[in-house]
Write a protein that binds this DNA or RNA. Structure first.
Length: 590
DNA sequence: ATAGGGTTAG
């Protein structure tokens, strides 16, 4: 019986990155078990055989469901464990839900916490939201809704549905002594996935305060959250946790670390983690390193990693190509982007997806080849999505094509009339062209349709704390000093000859436009970072913004990087800007 | 004996 037990239990927690029995064909083990213990075919035996063929133990849904069904049908009188075993082995497939329904119909059994957890997991992966909601109600009726098994799967279920509030409600409705490492990890991951990085970090802190050791899942979730904030110091702290907890060699953690350092613009540190773990043959890890370079527009190193990957016998997947393509696109090289896209299909036999085409269309727009971009959109076999039109819309902005911009914005709005970015970018393009009537028209459209503009927000991380600033913020505890610093900085910039352009009038009222420059959130974050004692002299400032950085702020940042002799890294919604001694790495097109 | 949480792109 050892063979079955060994295979059905998860071994990944003891041995990072080992594949153990997971790659052994379950049929071999099944046959071995039948041979070695032919007399031992009771209910237990079948339960183990079922879990042996479990869908979960396979990287992709397998074709072993017939073995599972046969083993189940051999059980003389299936009890709740038999059913749960069947349901969980088929988790991720509709069959699992169907068997649950037939259990309810043909027996008087009620599900327990494990049954419900499996079912909820299935609903999560199938996006079967109504079914999941009724399972939540059912768990409540059975007084199981606060069980950690049910709770953890409910937390992920609601996260997948995009309702982090519901995830949090489930988490906090469980009493704290019901918490375990798994449901805390689920909450961290859920919040990170729903773009609520600060809440995710909170939960991680509470988890550690409650005495739970970090897990690979909670660390990778927290790293994902830190990556979302480009919080370099947080990444370092979590990296430390991983080292102390002995989790730093797990592929998922390495992958999340490389991604986190990469998103924080710290390519060197990402590379260090990668180099230390390059013996891990995990495509995700290698892809993460490539996309770290891609985001910084460093094509050379990205391609180098790609070739190293191949020489190790690893097979590049669609993510690898997405990384390479976005590296080429960010570097503005049409030829390379085309070449890699062609290779992807013709040499590697991978069919490019919409995202791959987006890279090509983006770079075409970037260099102003609009006709070619439109031809590609027409000829590809995908329906263009908002991201395609948005990248062309922004390209119209760079090349001053206000009329074409209108068409592109209309395309976005046809897909989603509430897409605020379309209105905002279009209005900006019109105001650059000084076509004020049309600016007013866009504003009116926005008002009439009740479209809300997302407020600009910027983050800066100092001393392991993330400070958030809103446009025109007055909330920060050192706000007086910040505004004083700001006027000092702007005074210096003026002396250098900078004239505020107001070219990019936003959709705010005119009075706000006058004030806007000094009060944009990234300016507040920058001024805060430059206050005495906040960051050591010479330290690179890292600011993250939820929108695109405006032209004025961009100009002012260039001047300030020179006057204060500091590197300033701004990650806006599109790309990185590294300001150094009066220049920006984006070459003033973004 | 049956169980819940995972990285890479945009």
């Amino acid at each position: 019986m050892e063979g079955v037990r060994c295979c059905s239990s998860s071994s990944s927690h003891n041995h990072p990155n080992s594949h153990n029995d997971k790659n052994v064909d379950p049929r071999v083990i099944h046959a071995r078990n039948l041979r070695t213990c032919p007399n031992f075919v009771d209910r237990f035996f079948h339960h183990r055989i079922i879990s042996l063929y479990s869908f979960n133990s396979k990287p992709e849904p397998n074709s072993h469901s017939s073995y599972i069904h046969r083993s189940f049908s051999l059980i003389p009188s299936p009890n709740l464990v038999s059913w749960t075993s069947l349901i969980s082995s088929l988790s991720g497939s509709y069959l699992s839900l169907l068997h649950f329904l037939s259990m309810l119909r043909t027996t008087s059994l009620l599900p327990n916490h494990r049954t419900l957890a499996s079912l909820l997991r299935t609903c999560t992966s199938l996006l079967a939201f109504p079914f999941g909601l009724s399972l939540h109600a059912f768990s409540f009726k059975l007084s199981l809704s606060e069980d950690p098994f049910v709770g953890s799967s409910l937390i992920s279920f609601y996260a997948k549905q995009g309702s982090p509030e519901d995830s949090l409600r489930v988490f906090y409705q469980m009493s704290e002594r019901q918490w375990d490492a798994v449901c805390c990890s689920a909450a961290v991951v859920a919040l990170a996935q729903c773009y609520r990085p600060d809440d995710a970090m909170d939960v991680l802190v509470r988890m550690r305060a409650s005495g739970f050791k970090p897990t690979t899942q909670s660390l990778s979730g927290a790293l994902r959250a830190a990556a979302g904030m480009a919080a370099l110091e947080q990444c370092r702290v979590i990296h430390g946790c991983a080292l102390v907890g002995g989790l730093d060699r797990f592929a998922v953690v390495c992958c999340a670390l490389v991604n986190g350092y990469g998103k924080a613009g710290a390519a060197r540190e990402a590379r260090r983690v990668f180099d230390e773990n390059a013996d891990i043959m995990n495509t995700g890890l290698w892809n993460a390193m490539m996309s770290a370079y891609a985001q910084l527009g460093e094509v050379g190193p990205a391609i180098e990693i790609f070739h190293a990957m191949e020489s190790k016998g690893m097979v590049p997947d669609e993510f690898s190509f997405l990384a390479i393509l976005s590296a080429c696109a960010n570097a503005g090289s049409v030829v390379d982007t085309e070449c890699w896209l062609m290779q992807m299909r013709n040499v590697y036999g991978l069919e490019p997806s919409l995202e791959h085409y987006t890279c090509l269309i983006r770079v075409m727009g970037y260099v102003g080849r609009f006709e070619d971009a439109k031809r590609i959109v027409r000829e590809m076999q995908f329906e263009p999505d908002a991201a395609i039109w948005r990248s062309l819309l922004m390209a119209c902005g760079h090349h001053g094509k206000a009329d074409m911009a209108r068409t592109m914005a209309d395309r976005i709005l046809a897909l989603d009339p509430n897409d605020e970015s379309a209105y905002v970018i279009l209005a900006r393009i019109y105001s650059c062209a000084r076509r004020w009537d049309e600016v007013a028209e866009v504003r009116k459209m926005m008002r009439d349709r009740g479209v809300k503009k997302e407020g600009g927000r910027s983050w800066i991380e100092v001393q392991h704390e993330v400070h958030v600033f809103m446009a025109g913020d007055k909330m920060h505890e050192r706000i007086q000093e910040i505004y004083a610093k700001l006027s000092e900085l702007l005074g210096k910039v003026k002396n250098l000859g900078h004239v505020p352009g107001w070219k990019e009038a936003s959709l705010d009222s005119d009075k706000e436009i006058e004030e806007a420059m000094g009060y944009h959130s990234e300016m507040l974050a920058l001024a805060f970072g430059l206050l005495d004692g906040v960051t050591p002299a010479g330290k690179t400032l890292r600011i993250v913004k939820n929108l695109r950085i405006c032209m004025d702020c961009h100009m002012v940042f260039k001047y300030i990087s020179r006057t204060v002799q500091r590197e300033i890294l701004v990650r806006d919604v599109n790309r990185y800007h590294l300001f150094q001694d009066g220049t920006c790495s984006c070459g003033d097109i973004w």
